[in-house]
Nucleic acid binder design. Sequence first.
RNA 1: GCCAGUGUAGCUCAGUUGGUUAGAGCGAGGGACUCAUAAGCCCUAGGUCACAGGUUCGAUCCCUGUCACUGGCACCA
Length: 532
Amino acid sequence: MNRFFITTAIDYTNGAPHIGHAYEKVLADVLARFHRQTGEEVFLLTGVDQHGQKVQQSAEREGIAPQEYVDGVTAKFLALWEKLGVVYDDWAATTAPKHKECVRAILTRLWEDRDPATGASRWIYKAARAGHYSVRQEQFLTDKERGPNGEFGPEWGQVEYREEENYYFRLAEHRQWLLDLIDARSGEGKPFVVPEFRVSELRNAVEKLEGDLCISRPKNRLSWGIEFPFDPGFVTYVWFDALVNYLSFAPGYDPIPTRPPHEFLAWWRTVIHDIGKDILIPAHGVYWPVMLKALGFSDAEMPTLLVHGWWNISGAKMSKSLGNTVDPDVLADRYGRAALRYYLMADIATGRDADFSEERLIQRYNVDLANGLGNLVNRTLNMTLKYREGSPAPIDLPADLATHLTANTLAQETYVRSMRDGQVQAGLESLGDVVNRANALVDASAPWKLAKDPEQADRLDAVLATLILSARTAATMLLPVLPEAAAEILEQLNLVAAPLEERGLELLPAGYRCGEPKPVFPRLDAIVPPEA
RNA sequence: GCCAGUGUAGCUCAGUUGGUUAGAGCGAGGGACUCAUAAGCCCUAGGUCACAGGUUCGAUCCCUGUCACUGGCACCA
């Protein structure tokens, strides 16, 4: 059986989830559900990044332990995924003992991977760096931070000269390897980064790669992290902690053996990292492949990065400081899970940015779901019950209706291709084709007229069967995005989902009888004003 | 500053591996119908595909330059 391993970025537990977090997780959930539907074995991994300075500071401000603080924020994420119907196979929390042990084992392994000539680690070294340090911002400053007059501005507070030792991961010497990898993957038609227009962006960044990656923080600066296994004076700094979650929670992974076991590799060879464009460079596009290489992963075992865009608010970047964040929790309560999931999948092309608007959300729901698919199901079932007591006579379809179903099959094939590429919006457009064609057929064939003419009895049976089968195709294509609503439609149709690889015509089963219609997507009338 | 992305109908956006009449939805106008969630269907929009060059038999789609907007280059979907 084919496998499909998809991960999301793990969200930083220093604030409540916003629409961007929700989008990424719903996207992963939809792709996971789609791949399951095609018969593949699927593993969806998501979680939270709980360490770091900001968490430590926030906890101190509230006078509670960091773990207590992150547990509180983590609960909000867990509740949101529950509310949005995001179902995952494992939960990657970076404070979990399993993860900490894995990070430490990996660091130890790299530290002990010695160059026989020098006796030094081939991957990690300790070095002292000196420079200007902002106490307020708790970071070293570079010349880029200097103002026009060459001085550090007041936003940095007190700036002092400091010297600090840290551990570094060798990065720069793998520049050419990474460039070759990127080019090779593009040449094979399996780009390292999807969508492909981001490849050049990454490539340029790699071209300019210099310097190594600082992977530690002295404990006196940062204590809320994973302690270095071979130097208790340090904790692991962000990326060697966060990125490793993809391994520590991967099915079957064990950091100890030289080569990972077969079960893990069977999953890993299919892995797709669903991430935002902000963490492509340098984290996922540079650090991560080099880290994997250091751990002995071959070029064929490098992941694919599925990079999505951002939801902007009125064209502006969403940010807390602008106060224009959108709370997915509130939206889900206000409009329902289905409306929110559908909007997030239908109104953005994977990889691109889009503008978020509640008006658009309502519009897409009403036009596509209520007026389109929902009404199609409703009118089809009503007519079937009214004219045929729910059971159209089983007859062969005339050529025009057979052609109609063939067009549906083609739409479904297009849909499958789009979804395999992660292009959910394009997939939903194919769904819209099926719905529109069926609604047009209703008007063109006018069953209410056929019903009055006994000589047209066969025609009426054939039209109703075509409509029912079209509705089934549409519901089948909706399943990954809106599983409950699609299941409800199938129940009303009294049919099971169509197989996605199906070809050729399939008629209604013998003795078919449809169920009772009930609007699956009640119209949303207008923007519900926010609570005063 | 460096790098990247974007710039397509009133609005929000697709798309074109270069090739006869550039697409969708919404909005707007008109029409016929009644099975249906007053939903659906049909017809209508004529946008120099940012601007200027270049390559080509032919460019909106490739190249160069210009302008505008956005993002990355410091944590951050």
